[in-house]
């Protein structure tokens, strides 16, 4: 129980910093797979590390020592995990269990609801046109999934833009993007440090669908312009105080999309050349996940060895 048990708790904190730059640079499909898998592994390891710390603290209890036929003083001497640390780990572990269970329930309900509704909305060609004046388009996961688009939005687009919009939504359904976002957000529910990673996955699935739409229509600029057009038609979202004050200053300066919302970043990415694969970045993420997994394993072996020593001393 030395350094190794803390690494699975430290590495998710580092990914929080790396998530957004990674999502911006990696090819979207690769990024989605990589970041979702990494989130699942890191969450599993973080929970395992907390469980090991908790177990290690619990092993120090005299009652358990008597039950397990090992020497409690020998264990105490060999194990550097302080009682306070063990207690903190126990609290965090319980918290993780609660948030993960709540998150799982919420997501499962939303998905079940979506499947039910999609089954009820039997539409021609998987497209439901919602009358009215709202500007709205979304993919509804189901079996089969449905695409819901408002009549007002369809009217506001020309034939090519409509094709781009539908190709984007079809990609969401065909690639089962909701499974990636669900996995990533469940990982974040168990380990809140992974929330930036889960948000990055939300973004990369949009990018993935954008790139699919660009391939389907053969025109990246068309997809970019369609996203921009639709976003500007959509009523504005809640104003964010920080950005509002920036706007009030009104200084004309070169704006970067790096810290902008998802829509400008998606449009900028489509106006740029198609994304390339970055072997080095992929390797870095794989290495971080592998290091986390090995650390958790090593910590488990540490605890096992510790108990062996204590048992021998009994």
């Amino acid at each position: 129980m030395r350094l190794f048990v803390y690494l699975p708790l430290l590495i998710p904190a580092l990914t929080a910093l790396a998530a957004r730059p990674l999502a911006a640079r990696l090819e979207p499909r690769q990024a989605t797979w990589l970041l979702t898998t990494a989130a699942a592994i890191l969450a599993g390891c973080a929970v395992a590390a907390l469980a090991l710390l908790t177990a290690s603290a619990a092993a120090g209890l005299p009652a358990l020592a008597a039950l397990g036929h090992y020497s409690q003083p020998a264990l105490r001497r060999a194990d550097p995990v302080a009682a306070v640390t063990g207690l903190a780990a126990t609290v965090l572990l319980a918290g993780a269990a609660v948030t993960a269970a709540t998150g799982l329930r919420r997501r499962a309900r939303a998905l079940a609801e979506s499947y039910r509704r999609a089954a009820r909305l039997r539409a021609d060609g998987g497209l439901v046109v919602m009358p009215g004046n709202a500007i709205e388009a979304y993919a509804l996961p189901g079996w089969p999934g449905q695409i819901v688009v408002s009549a007002a939005l369809l009217e506001a687009l020309d034939d090519r833009q409509r094709a781009a919009l539908l190709a984007h939504e079809r990609a969401h359904l065909a690639r089962r993007h909701h499974l990636f976002t669900t996995t990533a957000h469940l990982a974040a529910a168990a380990c809140p440090l992974l929330l930036p990673l889960a948000r990055a996955v939300d973004y990369t699935v949009e990018r993935w669908a954008d790139e699919d739409a660009a391939r389907a229509t053969g025109d990246r600029r068309l997809v970019a312009a369609t996203i921009g057009h639709v976003a500007l038609l959509t009523p504005p979202c809640r104003p964010r105080p920080a950005t509002a004050s920036l706007g009030a200053a009104g200084r004309p300066r070169r704006v970067s999309v790096a810290w902008a919302g998802p829509v400008p970043r998606r449009v900028a990415a489509l106006l740029a050349p198609p994304p390339a694969r970055h072997a080095v970045l992929v390797a870095a993420v794989v290495a971080a996940a592998a290091l986390t997994g090995l650390s958790a394993l090593e910590a488990a072996r540490d605890l096992h060895a510790l108990l062996e020593i204590a048992r021998a001393a009994h």
Partner: peptide, 14 residues
């Protein structure tokens, strides 16, 4: 959890 909107509304800066 389930709906992916084509394009969300924008802040003024965006």
């Amino acid at each position: 959890a389930v709906l992916s909107r084509f394009a969300s509304g924008l802040s003024g800066r965006d």
